[in-house]
Design a binder for these strands. Sequence first.
DNA 1: GCATCTGATGTAAGCCTTTACATTTCTGCA
DNA 2: TGCAGAAATGTAAAGGCTTACATCAGATGC
Lengths: 341, 341
Amino acid sequence: MNADKPTPTLHDVADLAGVSTATVSRCLNFPDRVKQATRDKVMAAVDALGYAPNFGARAMASQRTNTIGAIIPTMENAVFARGLQAFEDELRQHGFTLLVASSSYRADVEEAQIRSLIARGADALLLIGHDRDPAIYQFLEGQRKPALVTWAYDPDNPRPSVGFDNRAAMRAMAEKVLALHHRKLALISAPMASNDRARARMMGIRDAMAAYGLTPEALAVIETPYGIENGADAFARLMQADDRPTAVFCGNDVLGVGALRQARAMGLDVPGDVSVVGFDDIELSQVTYPPLTTVHVPHGAMGRKAARALVAMVLHGQPAETTALPTEIVMRGSLAAIDPA
Amino acid sequence: MNADKPTPTLHDVADLAGVSTATVSRCLNFPDRVKQATRDKVMAAVDALGYAPNFGARAMASQRTNTIGAIIPTMENAVFARGLQAFEDELRQHGFTLLVASSSYRADVEEAQIRSLIARGADALLLIGHDRDPAIYQFLEGQRKPALVTWAYDPDNPRPSVGFDNRAAMRAMAEKVLALHHRKLALISAPMASNDRARARMMGIRDAMAAYGLTPEALAVIETPYGIENGADAFARLMQADDRPTAVFCGNDVLGVGALRQARAMGLDVPGDVSVVGFDDIELSQVTYPPLTTVHVPHGAMGRKAARALVAMVLHGQPAETTALPTEIVMRGSLAAIDPA
DNA sequence: GCATCTGATGTAAGCCTTTACATTTCTGCA
DNA sequence: TGCAGAAATGTAAAGGCTTACATCAGATGC
């Protein structure tokens, strides 16, 4: 199983083909600069040896890797997964490779992953959200590695981002809910510490409440980690309170789906007894019963746009412009008007 | 934005700290081999410069990367995502890093990704399923890189795998369905070319049919790519046929959920008019209406076990043993007995 | 106070590839 | 046939890190 023969190098290929390493290198990188006959010999040697170029050595010699790294909070979230898939597709079309890491929503892990991706030669990084120790940005600057934030939009933040306005999107949803006469509102949110998206979404609801003359602090809030089970538990707690909400906002669809499941378990009719709304519009939310009313996020477009921006940054040193993509509310079955009786 | 100052190297740190590069290297790799005072100086320099070791150079010099690569068909599938998360957790505990790539279920892309991960220095690879051009295995052998197959279990295959018996699992499910008096069966499967898991699952159903004295060929089969929409379409086609099945097997839960959605859209009662069963047991299947009866796959355990096996292969050259983890049938609401009227 | 040993640090080679530059081979034309 | 110029190929340095080995400074024991 272990190395009885060392893995072949450029040198081995060159020897076997009877040419110099430079020629082999050219064969691999600029095939049209070598004669057909030579190329055939070399390629035969490459196949015979099962040669694969050593990425590290190549990166070191050529000073570029054509690799872009991305760090997402979790791979289990379908939203990130889809955005990333689009991101990778676009990247590949520009001849770049994607390196992915996940941080489990932990700041310390994220920092380690950032360093690891940079050390691995990533030419640039894609990050989710703005919230991050300033030291990390300094580190990236020191390394001259551009970074692009996505999933968030904050025109006041000096770091560029390609995302969407979480606050405005959630505000729009909240206004819709308020327009349907709901007045007792609750929110099941992802933990808000070091999560600017979650905070922005809550602020959006409060904005709408204020606009409707309600006290923003009246919003009941439960923070809980990502997961169907957690959403269900939080929902149960909310509905056991004396003063039940009539509409429950969920910071993301996964929590929303958990809430829906719990409602059924408790024998509560959605939207008859209580309305539930989500955020993200992942596939899940179309197949629940009732289907979940939610905020649609343009994952694909966002991923592709981020990829193009990052490629431009790397290739031409072109600074990225902060852009917001539009979100929209998808009305399905889980939100209804309150009978103003 | 672009490099006005080059990124700092070991040498720069050494100069700033007034020591040699060897000392800096030792500080980073074997902190206890340098004096406290020296270490402090060096670390201060590291921080001041924002130094990060160059992975390629390090790999080249030390001849190992402590990195394991994994190639999954798609990131969008929650099943792979969960297994991978467990895999990564376990890997990290052993001091290894995970490199992920996805192949979009395409053999050519998978091959490119395999080469890319090896070139990037992966010490070993995790692959999904056995089906693969033999040349790829030869290549891996030539590179002396161990590979472990997961998600599948085939004791006859010489390549080691840590997975589960797709065929037996699906057969058990089919026997359950047959015991409930269903006789007209259909299968919505992922494309079976170059997908041994999909084929094995179909064989499992046929095995059970044969055991019940039915003609295995009577199984109606539709192949369609991964996706809720595709599952829905396939289900619609199945139910428009003259001879409707009474039970529809789905090769995975995502297709199953699509079938469920379509059933509702067509006004068909599940399981009253038709039963639907899935495979994988992803979170999705608990929240549909009715909840999906499915085959539970031990993602987490599988990921962790695979990680341990791979680490042992890399560290001690210990060959992996092919092992199968148990699956189980999760009865939910989408499967019911047929009224033998 | 000296030889010896230990622990801390420095020196320099080597890992594999790319690429600027040097050299050789070929082509075409006078 | 011979030569200029182009095309093909070779030579060798550079890139950042680890590590075997060499060196040096103190500590130890007598």
